[in-house]
Design a binder for these strands. Sequence first.
DNA 1: TCCTTATGTACAA
DNA 2: TGTACCTAAGGAC
Length: 271
Amino acid sequence: MAEGPTKHPQGQAKPARFSGTSTRVTSPQGKFSDSAALLTGAELTRTEAHGKHLFLGFRDTEWVHIHLGLFGKVAFGDAPAPPPTDTVRLRLANETAYVDLRGPTTCALIADPEKHAIHDRLGPDPLRADADPSAAYARVRRSRTTIAALLMDQKVIAGVGNVYRAEVLFRHGVDPYRTGRDITPAEWDAIWNDLVDLMREGVRNNRIDTVRPEHTPEAMGRPPRVDDHGGEVYVYRRANQPCHLCGDPIRTADLAARNLFWCPTCQRGRA
DNA sequence: TCCTTATGTACAA
DNA sequence: TGTACCTAAGGAC
């Protein structure tokens, strides 16, 4: 439940509700209690994201490092906050609002050096102003690993998950099994730029839509469709259903313990 | 009520 | 490569 943008702090436009005021920090579930006690009354001064990692800044050098993993969820609400359920790992609450965090793979209080170490092991993030796509391509071009696996490798590119991986390869007609060294600079440019656009839109809308306007059901003269994860996509989780463009069945396969989806007809090789 | 699944990662072998 | 971890929804009984 946590592909980069849909859980991006700016995308929620809500950290502001906790800035400029002291925050009550609790961990009803208990696993973050000690750190929560240290933070109570502190002010949330900034938020930052790199890939799927989220950092909430308190005081000068203290950060709550959050990674939602596969199951993590964030829920905002207006004060007064209801009694928390027993799975709430972290709750921030002030006079006007609250936010609950459930099921994260990581929720830890860290300092600057640990935060730097996390940035250091992540690749460029298409959503960040400081991102350098050529650093990602430098790794891609010398790899014999498939492009489908490389796009999921956070050391190569940060923030892309199983949905964007499948969708961006479809949008560029790239066979997911081509190796990194086979991807041309022009292809990488196109993929990167597309990810920047798609992920920004994902942040804006808080959902992942990848279908071009000319391929929507209305534009294609077909009945409306709703993909079950809430966004409009070409191939993700559409195994055995007809490709929106060519009508051939979407295929699925296990790749590095994740489900890969692609259209073997539309993704025959080069873009 | 049980089983499966999921937009993820880390570590052991 | 396999497994552990975290939660909740949906579907099969």
